[in-house]
């Protein structure tokens, strides 16, 4: 993937948001792993979409 330009700002923003989400998940004991992944995936799609546009 060396020919792909990865925007570092987008990455940093994503890391902060993912950690925030994981903190929220840690307090939701009943939440399924699948649901957690889906939320993170959605977040990545949104942020990367903005970057790609």
């Amino acid at each position: 993937m060396s020919d792909l330009d990865i925007d570092q700002n987008t990455l940093e923003k994503l890391i902060t948001k993912i950690i925030k989400l994981e903190k929220k998940f840690a307090n939701k004991r009943g939440m399924l792993e699948r649901e957690k992944r889906s939320e993170i995936k959605k977040l990545i799609e949104q942020e990367v979409e903005v970057n790609a546009d």
Binding site: M1, L4, I6, L11, L14, I15, I44, V48, N51, A52
Partner: peptide, 15 residues
């Protein structure tokens, strides 16, 4: 699009 998202995710994981 998927490849770009995947690349970002892989980079996020690494970081």
């Amino acid at each position: 699009k998927i490849a770009i998202r995947k690349a970002y995710t892989a980079e996020l994981r690494k970081k």
